[in-house]
Design a protein around this nucleic acid. Structure first.
Length: 660
DNA sequence: GTGGATGAG
DNA sequence: CGCTCATCCAC
């Protein structure tokens, strides 16, 4: 295209050898200095950042194959009512796809193994695998898959004591390898840990040239020159390949470009990723595919390059040629309305088509809010972080479409009970992992025939005993508010979907004692503190870091804040003098004093962390990129001085019900 | 607090 | 497909 591109905003100087065609990708080979290598907490700006996305191949199908002990090379599908929700790779060879009807699938492959998902039968407490479940009496249960998913996630965590894990869906997770890789680099190349005496610029000198890399056995390295085979496709997989194969490295066309330290980082991450994937296959049986690149979005894209049971690596040098021909609507978050709008606005379909659009042009259209994100994504930049999520989701919903709609209000409680049974089971199981899990609210949704879905919610009692009965009766109450009773109605009823769910599910991150108090039967909990039932250990890879942070601020601010009354529900911070109170919905709710105290302590810790974060962000002018959050209006993220970010992501109570 | 939109798998 | 999940936003 023509030279409208030159109107680039801000000061992005084409680094070094930007050829004409690569001018758009401006930071593929940043200089890495000793200072950068040695510093911690560079976050998304770390020039050695390495992210992986790992997902399980045809996960639901694999779950059933393993549960039933079926030969993995046999074609297998998972059925839900009349259609398929999962197709394993052997079955895909017959041309069977998701959302096909089973009839069609069986025609294509007579020897197909068909497994129906587990279902709850009305009245049953647990889901089971039944031959011919009836959609008018049963409800689908995905519990088994959730449990298996947890197993896999846990293996990631165990395999990576110092890496961040973000569960992105039931079958995939992002892994931030930056820290473990940095540790490994320093271990393998100890000469990097000291700035050489003769370094021209001291710590700001660039690192010496990196060692050559043996990519063999680390995965498929995407070509630097060859254009991407517009990814997607049905992966060309070795027939009946069993064992993990991360040793399928293709020839690397290294012709043009010399190795960088970032490539070394990628290679080490690939090694670690391969080990973990191997372990997962050995211990729980699932094969996985992974993508390794410098950020989340590229990792995700790269993972789909070759499936199943393999991993791919995207070097920075390979980014331009991989991205340019890519249909941009395949990019995460551009698959929907936004992507469509952009496609139509500019009559574009590939990333390359859009590279000539300036940021200003993007912003002038209605994409204002997301423009920066889009602009950067197209250029291979993604500043979103791998955010450790709670092992448990923040919400938990059970829903049922009703082929035979509810016509009378009195039929509601029946389905509510079925849904409540599922919720009770899921909460009970979740609490086996995280003992003091507390759902803050219960929500009931009901959808009338085709349009309106309405909902009612209410605070859910703070109780250990979240039995079917408790949930169901709370649900019944909401039902009454929502649809009334048969007698009270004047309009006809036709409910085609009912859903019951918890929201605000959080972990009490406080301390052993309050958890014990919470777990004990309400009657006996008062004094018998003797038995310390060890809470199942919960991973916290950042103890050190956190302790360090607290120390840092404590030393600055004096230790404990000033004394406050014994039964206070607040404390006063020495640093800022603010009075920090427990949120209203916690006090006076019949909470035991011990819990209030622990909650206060948690608040204090969080508040201290907040001060630390403020200091930190002053040092590094932090800015976080993520698609939707990124609204220019919401505060100049890059203004260090005036910023008064409050502990936003959930004021005050965040740590108490920390997302973890 | 409610309800819709949007996007993901 | 049918069933989940998360997040944002206007009211």
């Amino acid at each position: 295209m023509t030279s409208t591109v030159s109107a680039k905003p801000v000061s992005w100087k084409g680094k070094g050898k930007a050829t004409n065609s690569e001018a758009d990708f401006y930071d593929l080979n940043p200089m890495i200095t000793y200072r950068l290598l040695h510093s911690r907490n560079l976050g998304v700006k770390d020039p050695l950042r390495v992210i992986a996305l790992c997902d399980s191949d045809a996960f639901y199908a694999a779950c059933e194959q393993i549960r039933l002990g079926i030969d993995p090379s046999r074609p297998l599908v998972v059925q839900q009512w009349d259609s398929l929700i999962a197709v394993n790779y052997p079955a895909r060879k017959f041309g069977i796809t998701r959302m096909e009807k089973i009839k069609e699938a069986k025609k294509k492959c007579p020897e197909l193994v068909v497994v129906h998902v587990a279902t709850y039968k009305e009245g049953e407490k647990e889901p089971g695998y039944w031959e011919n479940p009836d959609t008018s009496t049963h409800k689908v249960s995905l519990d088994h898959y959730r449990r298996e998913s947890m197993k896999v996630i846990r293996m990631f965590q165990e395999g990576l004591p110092s890496g961040e894990i973000e569960k992105a869906s039931i079958d995939e997770a992002f892994i931030d390898f930056t820290r473990p890789v940095r540790e490994e680099i320093l271990r393998r190349y100890p000469y990097l840990s000291q700035v050489p005496a003769d370094a021209p610029n001291g710590a700001d000198s660039p690192l010496p040239p990196p060692p050559p890399i043996m990519w063999d056995g680390l995965g498929t390295v995407l070509p630097v020159n060859a254009p991407s085979p517009v990814n997607s496709v049905i992966a060309v997989d070795a027939p009946g390949d069993q064992g993990i194969s991360y040793d399928d490295s293709e020839g690397i066309d290294n012709g043009d470009d010399s190795t960088t330290w970032h490539d070394v980082a990628l290679a080490i991450a690939a090694e670690l990723m391969g080990k973990i994937r191997h372990d997962i296959h050995m211990k729980v049986g699932y094969t996985t595919s992974a993508g390794i690149a410098r950020n989340k979005f590229l990792a995700k894209l790269t993972a789909s390059y070759k499936k199943p049971n393999s991993q791919s690596i995207l070097r920075n040098a390979a980014i331009p040629n991989y991205l340019r021909p890519l249909p941009f609507q395949k990019i995460r978050f551009l698959g929907g309305k936004l992507g469509k709008a952009i496609a139509e606005e500019y009559e574009a379909s590939t990333v390359g088509d859009l590279l000539s659009i300036s940021l200003g042009q993007l912003m002038q259209r209605k994409f204002g809010e997301e423009s920066i994100w889009v602009y950067e994504i197209l250029r291979g930049i993604d500043r979103s972080e791998v955010k450790e999520k709670s092992a448990v989701n923040k919400s938990m919903m059970a829903s049922k479409n009703l082929p035979n709609p509810i016509m009378k209000a009195s039929q509601g409680p029946h389905w509510i009970r079925v849904l409540a049974a599922e919720l009770a089971l899921r909460l009970r199981e979740a609490r086996e992992e995280m003992p003091a899990l507390w759902p803050k609210t219960l929500v009931l949704h009901a959808r009338q025939s085709y349009d309106a879905s309405r909902s009612k919610q209410a605070a859910f009692p703070f109780t250990r005993d979240a039995s079917v009965d408790v949930i169901a009766s709370a649900g019944d109450k909401l039902w009454k508010e929502l649809v009334g009773t048969d007698n009270s109605r004047t309009t006809p009823l036709k409910i085609t979907n009912v859903a019951l769910g918890f929201t605000g599910v959080g972990v009490m991150e406080v301390g052993q004692r309050s958890i014990d108090a919470f777990l004990k039967p309400p009657s006996t909990s008062k004094e018998a503190q003797g038995t310390d039932t060890p809470v199942k250990r919960k991973r916290d890879s950042h103890d050190d870091a956190q302790d360090a942070r607290r120390d840092l601020v404590r030393r600055k601010s004096g230790s404990d804040g000033e004394a406050v009354p014994d039964r206070a529900t607040y404390f006063v911070c020495n640093e800022c003098g603010k009075r920090i109170s427990l949120p209203g919905d916690l006090v006076g709710d019949g909470l035991e004093q011990v819990i209030v105290k622990e909650a206060l302590e948690a608040l204090r810790v969080e508040h201290t962390d907040f001060h630390y974060a403020q200091e930190l962000s002053k040092e590094l002018g932090d800015s976080v990129g993520s698609p939707r959050k990124f609204r220019p209006s919401s505060g100049e993220q890059t203004q260090p001085g005036t910023k008064k970010r409050k502990p936003k992501q959930s004021g005050g109570i965040a740590k108490f019900f920390a997302a973890k």
